[in-house]
Every structure is written in structure tokens, then in C-alpha cells.
Computed example of a mutant assay.
Amino acid sequence: MTVKPTKPDWLRVKAPQWERVGTVKEILRDLGLNTVCEEASCPNIGECFNAGTATFLIMGPACTRACPYCDIDFEKKPKALDPQEPENLAEAVRRMTLNHVVITSVNRDDLPDGGAAQFVRCIEAVRRVSPQTTIEVLIPDLCGNWDALAQILDARPEVLNHNTETVPRLYRRVRPQGDYARTLELLRRSRKLAPSVYTKSGIMVGLGETDEEVRQVMQDLRSVDCDILTIGQYLQPSPKHLPLQAFVTPEQFDAWRVAGEAMGFLQVVSSPLTRSSYHAEQVRALMQQNPR
């Protein structure tokens, strides 16, 4: 019988101010938008909604992949793309007066371009309504469709994020429809196609990886000139999801941050509660310090 690790004190989050959370939710519901904050049961939803920020989930909420760690629904059939979604997203950015917006999506392997055109439409809509807002896109691997990747990069988001998620040894179990080499190739091509766009990736830990494996992933990401790295604790969304193997200590997260900075990452956000878009707005300061 496997003993479930006990949740440590360092993973406890502050109770959110529900008045502010409610305001953000009202905007999202009014405009018919989804957020990964809600769909993926993010532990930081209170903090981010209180701060008036959200990571918008386009083309969802149903996903065409069934990654066993993720809480996004994969059992429903994906719907046709909403032609009004880009304009509604831009309106939400305006109402929330966002300085930085993160746009992500479910995997849409049913679409020839993996949803690249919808990403572009969303970027363009935000540019029209809120030109001062910096834009980060967190994209799927597009099944290796590099023309689709070029289409997104041609729209010139400030940041292109694609998560590595885990170490190569665990890919088959954690990300069965993904491919580690393809992830690195996507980031490598992004740097080559759009040198002015900052690249970013993230991994989750606590799934049985070793310190040496994490550091090797970090080295691999630097080998494709990835700028920004996030490392966070995996939390099992429900008993049906991939079981948690261990809670990683804050000291270990600090050690990875120091190691990543020494490797040359422009920014390493590494902590138990870190998620791909957690404190993503900090990239504005990064861009000022390291202009392209």
C-alpha cells in the first residue's frame, strides 16, 4: 500500500479576498471566457484573481489529449472555435486593465494548425484594444507543425512559453502524447525564427524525478537558448490523476534557482507554488533589463 505524502506547511496559501475574485469571475462569465486558473484547479487562483490577473484558456475547455497529471477535461468533444473569442478576450484585458496577459490553450490536435490561427487572432485583438499590454502565449506543441509555430511568432508576442513538464525518463507516464525532443525543437526554432521574442518553459517536480535529471533538463533548455524557466511542485488534482511521489522542499527549489541563474537563464522562478504563469507580469521588468 502506497502512503500518500503529507502536505507540508509551505504549501498553504492565503485565503483570497472573495470580493475581488468575484469581480474577475463576473467579467469572465459575462464574456464567456475560460481560464486555466479555474479549469486546471490552480492553487494560486485567489492570489492572481485578487491581483486582477488571469491566464486565459482559449479554444476550450475540452482538450484532445489525456495527460494524467492535468485537471483539464478531456472527456468532452472539443467544440468549434468561437469567432468572437478573440474580441471577448481583448475586452476582458481592457476591463481588467492588465499590464501583462497570458494566453494559453488546450491541445487542439483536431485542427490542422493546432489552433495557431486563433492564437494570432487573440494577439491581434489585444493589440488593437490595449496596445500597452505585453502578451505571453503558452502554446501546445502543435504536433510539430513548424509552419503553425511560425504563424504565431509572426504575430510577435513578447513571450513564447512551451512547457517541458517533466524529465525524459517520465515522459511516457506523465505526458504520453508529448515528445521531449519535439519540445526542445519547438523552443530552438522559436529562438531562430523570432530572436526578439523571449522564450520560456516550465517543469513540475514531485513525480519521481531526481535532482540530476532536473538539472539535465535545465541544461537542455539552455542549449536551445531558453530565456525563462519555471519550476513548481506537482499537486495531484484528484485520486484518479497521477499520484504524487514527494513534496520537494523550498531549499531544493532555491538550489535549482541558483543553478539556473548560473547556467545563464535570464529568470528562474522556482518555488513550491510556482506555475507556468505565476507572477508572469514580472517579465516586463525583465524586458527592460534585457532589451531585445
Rank of each mutant, 00 (worst) to 15 (best):
M1C: 12
T2S: 12
V3K: 10
V3R: 10
K4G: 04
K4M: 14
P5R: 09
T6S: 15
P8T: 11
L11D: 14
R12H: 13
K14C: 13
E19W: 10
V21M: 09
T23G: 11
V24Y: 03
K25N: 12
L31N: 01
C37M: 06
E38N: 02
A40T: 10
P43Y: 07
N44G: 05
F49P: 01
F49S: 00
G52N: 02
G52A: 08
G52E: 01
G52D: 04
G52I: 01
T53W: 01
T55A: 14
T55R: 00
L57W: 07
I58V: 11
M59T: 09
M59H: 06
P61G: 01
P61Y: 00
A62W: 03
A62S: 13
A66T: 09
Y69T: 03
I72P: 05
I72D: 06
D73I: 07
D73H: 02
F74L: 06
K76G: 10
K76M: 09
K77A: 13
L81E: 05
L81D: 02
L81W: 05
D82Q: 07
E85F: 02
E87A: 15
E87Q: 14
N88Q: 08
L89G: 04
A90K: 02
T97R: 12
L98S: 02
L98T: 01
N99D: 15
V101C: 07
V102L: 11
V102N: 14
V102Y: 08
T104N: 11
V106Q: 03
D110S: 04
G115P: 08
A116N: 03
A117K: 12
A117F: 08
Q118G: 03
V120L: 08
V120Q: 04
V126E: 10
V126N: 09
S130L: 00
P131G: 08
P131H: 04
P140Y: 07
L142M: 12
C143E: 15
N145Y: 11
A148N: 07
A148W: 06
A148C: 08
L149A: 05
A150G: 08
E158S: 12
L160F: 13
L160C: 10
N161V: 00
T164E: 07
P176C: 07
P176E: 07
Q177I: 00
G178M: 04
G178Y: 01
A181G: 09
T183Y: 00
E185D: 15
R188D: 15
S190G: 12
K192I: 15
K192M: 14
L193I: 15
P195S: 06
S196I: 13
S196N: 14
V197M: 01
I203Q: 00
I203S: 01
M204C: 06
L207A: 03
G208I: 08
T210R: 07
V217R: 00
V217A: 03
M218V: 00
Q219P: 02
R222S: 02
L229A: 00
Y234M: 01
L235D: 05
P237S: 06
S238E: 12
P239D: 03
P243I: 01
T249S: 14
T249G: 07
F253I: 08
D254W: 05
A255C: 06
V258Q: 12
V258H: 11
V258D: 13
G260Q: 00
A262I: 04
M263W: 05
G264T: 03
V269F: 11
P272D: 13
T274S: 15
T274I: 10
T274K: 10
S276E: 05
S276R: 06
E281W: 13
L286H: 11
M287I: 15
